[in-house]
Each structure stands twice: as structure tokens, then as C-alpha cells.
Simulated assay, not measured.
Amino acid sequence: MVIIVIRESKQKWKGDFLQDKKTVITYGTYDMLHIGHINLLKRAKALGDYLIVGVTDENYDRSRGKLNVSESTKKRLKAVEALDFVDMVIVETHKNQKAEDMVKYDVDIFAIGDDWVGAFDYLNEYTHVEYLPRTEGISSTKLRKENFDKIKLGIAGLGRDTIAFIDEAEYVSNLKVNRVYADDFLAVKAFTKDNERIKYGHDNYDDFLDTGIQAVYIDTALEEHYLLIKKALEADKHVLCENPLALDKDQLNELLSIAKKRGLLLL
């Protein structure tokens, strides 16, 4: 039976049944679980006796710019849980959790794919780090490209996170960002001038929404979020917005209700 741990109080981990067994831990997103994931997990299990798998939480993924995950945390957890050679599944929620887990679960080996060679050497302070070969020719990114149409996304606002978002979007498969809106015409003109990635600029939000974009990323002043999100949802656009989505509970509930009725994503 696989154990799923969402939150667990600190306690001595290795009881009698694990006292003489080697514990291995690994982490991943495991989006659209495929043979490459399974092969890597089997290689990790072969290093020891008890395999713990950390699945990244969707909020943690978004916080580190991983915007192209297609499946929910719950669905990805269930997929990994169904593997009969996995002994425990936990949720990874923050950057420092790996080091914490090494101590918490008295881990003997931390295993990860060799595309991360060197990135986790610092964990040798807590356990032995092993980089494992990946299966060539298969990845979640490739599957998303083969199975999903390209999403056209526009950016509303020229906030402090706009450039970072555009940079991160370059690494998101099936996502095309080439349009921006701001109510300052001169700012829009300056931003799009000689910009190889953002070809189109708008200073009218209705005109911006009346294009081929399917989703909107909003990075504006907080007091503008509610109206911009509402208009985007009513134009049948998915919305990704910096927190908070709205400044009061009634507005938030209204936005969530609109998104649900129209079958749209609001993140």
C-alpha cells in the first residue's frame, strides 16, 4: 500500500520495519506521467529498498515559472501513487523542502535525472546525491507539443513582473506571447518598438481582448485587477493574474463564479 503524506508532524521516521533498509527519495512534476518518468523512478527504486516520491504542488510550480503543467496536483499524485514500486508519495511545496526532507525521512540517497547534474550537489551535506540517466526521446514538454494546440496569450499591464514573465514564457511549450496592453500609449509604443517578441501593442483594453488571444496575464496595479479580470472572463479569455485577484471577498466570489460558469481558468 502506498502512503500519501500531505502534512506530517515532525517525528522519528525510521521505525523497526525500515531500520535496516535503504531509503531513496526523488522529486518531480510528473505531468502526463509517461515511460520516461516510470523508467527514472524504477532506477531510483533499484538504488535502495524504500522509495519516496515528491510531487510538486501546482502553486509551487507557478511560483518558479513553470506555467505549462497541464494536470492538477491531485491527478499527478494519483498517477504516481498507482505505481506499485513506489512506497510513499509526498507533496513538494517550497524551495527548501528537499533539504528538510533529507533529515525528516533519514534519507540515504537522493536521486534525480542527469539533466540536473551539479544542481543538487549541495544536498550531499545531508545524503548521497545520485544523478540518473533519463530516457531519450520522451518528455512532458514533447507530449504537450504533440497533444495540445498553441495558446495565444496577451499581457495586460507593464508591471515589474512583465519582463520576467515574458522571459519565462519562452520556455513554456505551446504558448505564444506577442501582444500587450497598457493605458499609456507612449509606454506601449516604447515597449513594442524593436521588440522581437512582442509585436502588437494596445492602449484600448476592449480592442486588446477583441483579438485572437485565448488567455490574458494581468500585471497591473492591484485596484485594477477586478475590472480587468471581469472583462477578460466576459470575453471568454482564460486569466492568469498576480495576487490578489480582487480587493474584497464579494468581488473575488463574483470572478470565480463567472470563470466557473464559462468553463474558464482563473489563476
Score class of each variant (00 low, 15 high):
K150T: 15
D236R: 01
F85R: 00
D115Y: 04
A82P: 09
S257Y: 07
L40M: 12
Y171W: 09
E58M: 14
E168L: 11
D57Y: 07
I258D: 06
F165T: 01
G154N: 04
M32E: 15
V24Q: 04
D108R: 05
Y60T: 02
E168C: 06
D87V: 01
A235N: 10
Q97T: 12
D194P: 01
I258N: 05
I163N: 10
R62G: 07
L83F: 03
V91Q: 04
V216W: 14
I52R: 00
T220L: 02
L228G: 08
G159K: 11
L175E: 09
A82V: 02
L132P: 05
R76A: 07
E234K: 12
T23F: 00
R64L: 14
A82K: 02
K75T: 14
L83Y: 00
E146Q: 08
E223Q: 13
N96E: 11
K42Y: 06
Y27R: 06
L175C: 10
K42D: 07
D167H: 15
G113M: 01
Y217N: 06
I4Q: 11
L40W: 04
A232E: 08
T141C: 05
W13T: 02
T23K: 08
I35D: 00
Y126E: 12
D183Y: 11
H37K: 02
W116D: 07
T162G: 13
A99Q: 06
V180A: 11
D84S: 15
K104V: 12
E92A: 10
V117C: 09
D250G: 14
E125C: 04
R197L: 09
D84V: 02
E170Q: 10
A235S: 13
G137K: 00
R64P: 02
T127M: 09
D203A: 05
L256V: 09
N253H: 09
K142I: 14
K14N: 04
D206G: 06
D210H: 09
Y50K: 01
L227E: 12
K152C: 12
N178L: 09
S9I: 10
L33E: 02
